[in-house]
Simulated assay, not measured.
Amino acid sequence: MIPSTSVAPGDSRQAVRRPRALLAAIAAVVVVAGLSVAHWGSAPWADPVGDALYASLVYVLVLVVAPRISPSSAALITAGACSAVELLQLTEVSTSLVESVPALRYVLGTTFSTVDLLVYLAAAALAALVDRALTRTAARKPGAAARGRG
């Protein structure tokens, strides 16, 4: 399904509505890819790829919650959330939670790294670029605005 667009009365900008079912499918693919990298990835590229997938998942989840948000706003929220989780690793809160619920290590991580912060920023920016390109392509399709009103 292609994201649809609609224009609010008196608004010259196009608001993009991304179908939640499509976003859920994308999120599922990203989760499977991330778990695969975490499980089988022991190469030096595995950690940054896992971090990029983590940020991509957060970006998609932001879109699920706010499907009409702009790509730049979604990227800022993603970068902020990922950075907050990474900075939480500097405290004992993250460690305590992971010790209590081991599966939380996939959400909270275990070790702070400044490289992770850079990867999160890059991945959020890349996700926004891809999102913007896809939504612009969908907006140019004939009838896209009409589909968004229904």
Rank of each mutant, 00 (worst) to 15 (best):
V101T: 14
A66L: 04
V107C: 04
Y120F: 10
R136M: 01
D47K: 14
V32G: 08
P9I: 02
A25R: 10
A24V: 15
I69R: 06
R18T: 10
A66R: 15
A138N: 10
R17T: 07
L76G: 15
G50E: 10
V119D: 05
I77K: 05
V107H: 07
A33C: 03
A66M: 04
L35C: 06
R13Q: 13
Y59E: 04
V32H: 15
A66T: 14
L23D: 12
G50V: 01
A124V: 03
V85Q: 02
L117V: 01
A33I: 02
A124K: 07
A127T: 00
L61H: 01
V101L: 07
A125K: 08
R132D: 06
T137G: 15
L22R: 09
V98S: 07
R105S: 13
S70I: 02
D131G: 11
V16K: 07
A8S: 15
G80A: 13
L129F: 05
L53M: 06
I69V: 12
A38S: 11
S72K: 02
A138S: 14
S42K: 14
V60M: 04
A38H: 07
S72F: 13
V7F: 12
A79D: 01
V130P: 04
T110D: 04
L90R: 12
P44K: 09
L76A: 12
P48L: 01
S113D: 11
I26P: 06
S113I: 05
R20E: 14
A38G: 12
T91E: 00
V64R: 07
S72A: 15
S12Q: 13
V37I: 10
L121R: 03
G34A: 15
A38W: 02
